[in-house]
């Protein structure tokens, strides 16, 4: 497992103003995400997980503190630069998929490439390639309304990976899915998202998917409570995910090659 720090936050504080009252949602968060690892951010509702995720991705600006993503200080990026940074380096997976209803699965997955300047015609074959690796080859030309929730979330995963991002963030990726579908989606995510050059951050409530994590960060009330390799609490020498990890990495190699190839064009 690589020890390269992909993302590090120091002293992140976030206040939300509502009227004349100010609510402090994050109280000084120090967090490191490592490349090649899947980190899960867990904790009770309202503890600030989504807020932290938004800050790490540059969507929200912290009240205080710094965010560093692969050597780039987000605080130093302005407007267009921040947008370009997100476009090139980040992949997003949302609870509500947020696919465009008018586009096919392959076209939806191709969006980050199109945003970067490719035509749909050039981008779609590369997105289709990613979808095929996820057993979605039969659904390339279907619109989201003709796909199940799990299939839609797979399209969203493809969209998050198609441009070969260095950081993939997922907010409650399984919350809208039934238990079984949630597990298979996580399996897919783990299989194709993990890469030595990529950090994956999953925010979740869903304890059934904890086993797919390399590292689990527990939050409560705007603070980090614990940050441990998965399985440490069980006093096992090898984290369960690590076994799985080795096999998955081999399976993912093929996909990665095509993705890295794609990223160099985007």
């Amino acid at each position: 497992m690589s020890a390269t720090v992909a993302v590090s936050t120091r002293g992140i504080v976030k206040d939300f103003e509502s009227g004349d009252a100010t609510a402090r949602v994050l109280h000084g968060i120090d967090l490191d995400l490592r490349a090649g690892e899947l980190t899960m951010l867990v904790g009770p509702s309202g503890c600030g997980k989504t807020t932290l995720l938004s800050i790490i991705t540059g969507i929200l600006t912290p009240t205080a503190g710094t965010v560093n993503v692969y050597g780039v200080d987000l605080g130093s990026l302005r407007g267009q630069d921040k947008v370009a940074f997100r476009r090139a380096r980040l992949g997003f997976i949302f609870q509500q998929y947020n696919l465009l209803p008018a586009l096919t699965a392959a076209e939806n997955a191709a969006l980050p490439l199109v945003a970067a300047g490719l035509t749909l015609k050039d981008a779609v074959p590369r997105a289709a390639e990613v979808l095929r690796r996820m057993d979605m080859g039969a659904h390339l030309d279907k619109t989201p309304s003709h796909l199940s929730g799990g299939q839609q979330q797979r399209v969203a995963i493809a969209r998050a990976l198609v441009h070969g991002p260095q950081l993939v963030v997922c907010d409650e990726p399984t919350a809208a899915l039934d238990a079984h579908t949630g597990l298979t989606v996580m399996e897919t995510l783990r299989e194709i998202a993990l890469d030595p050059g990529r950090a994956v951050l999953v925010v979740t409530h869903d304890s059934r998917i904890f086993r797919y994590a390399d590292r689990i960060v527990r939050m409560s009330d705007g603070r980090i409570e614990s940050d441990q390799l998965n399985g440490e609490t069980h006093h096992e020498t090898t984290p369960p995910a690590a076994h799985w990890h080795a096999a998955a990495r081999r399976r993912a190699a093929g996909v990665r090659d095509s993705l890295l190839d794609g990223a160099s064009h985007a």
Binding site: V83, F94, L100, L111, P112
Partner: peptide
Amino acid sequence: LRQFGALKAIGVGNRQ
């Protein structure tokens, strides 16, 4: 709006 929001998150700029 949600779709536009997703596009913005993905990195589609305001000018686009």
